[in-house]
């Protein structure tokens, strides 16, 4: 999410300043950050495989099913409510945007804006979880009667768990940031938090497509 900036403009100079600050830390820290970043990206990749496995299972079951959604007790299960799902998705994607601004504000040493954006992100994340809870309670199926329900609840449950962890993660980051754990040039934790939050968003894109649109 590079900020577009042409050389010579204020935005450009600002960007240079941020990058300089980011690089100009003591080399031990820079290297530690490097190592942790790499480890964190690998962790996200591995997590991705976890979701992929269940997505594979879902595709396998879905393509071998005679009709979809399946029929339970003589009634075909209703499709999920796309409108509600879409709204909830917007909430989650919105939180991705606000998180981006939170990190940018931190980079520009604007702590107030950072706090504001972060709180907004956390609220949106919690809002998404609330939406999911509503979705679960009003879902047209349960997790035992058909593989549709099984896949839906397992995958979105796994995702919801990730969002929940994300909310906790971001809250902890917020507390740490306000306690002075991070500085203008050392804020790996915030980068990791942002990356994780975007990851959770991207997974949701796939799930939303699989369960609501397809």
């Amino acid at each position: 999410m590079a900020v577009a900036a042409t050389p010579g403009t204020a935005a450009y100079l600002d960007r240079i300043a941020v990058e300089e600050r980011f690089r100009d830390v003591d080399p031990v820290y820079a290297e530690t950050r490097d190592i942790r970043m790499f480890g964190f990206v690998l962790f996200l990749l591995a997590d991705c495989i976890l979701f992929s496995s269940f997505v594979f299972a879902y595709l396998y079951l879905r393509t071998s099913a005679p009709v979809w959604p399946p029929i339970v007790d003589g009634h075909q299960i209703e499709r999920l409510d796309v409108a509600f799902g879409a709204m909830n998705s917007i909430v989650l994607f919105g939180s991705g945007v606000t998180m981006h601004f939170a990190l940018e504000s931190w980079k520009h040493l604007n702590k107030l804006a950072f706090n504001m954006w972060l709180v907004l992100t956390i609220l949106l994340g919690a809002g998404f979880l609330g939406g999911q809870a509503h979705e679960y309670l009003s879902a047209p199926m349960n997790y035992t009667s058909s593989v549709f329900g099984a896949s839906f609840f397992t995958l979105t449950g796994l995702h919801g768990f990730h969002v929940f962890c994300g909310v906790v993660f971001l809250t902890v980051l917020g507390i740490q940031a306000n306690r002075g754990v991070y500085t203008g040039s050392k804020y790996f934790g915030l980068i990791a938090g942002t990356l994780y939050w975007h990851f959770v968003d991207v997974i949701w894109v796939a799930l939303f497509f699989l369960f609501y649109l397809w």
Partner: peptide, 10 residues
Amino acid sequence: ALFAQKCSAC
């Protein structure tokens, strides 16, 4: 009733 349960998928 049984048909609805076992056959109506197909």
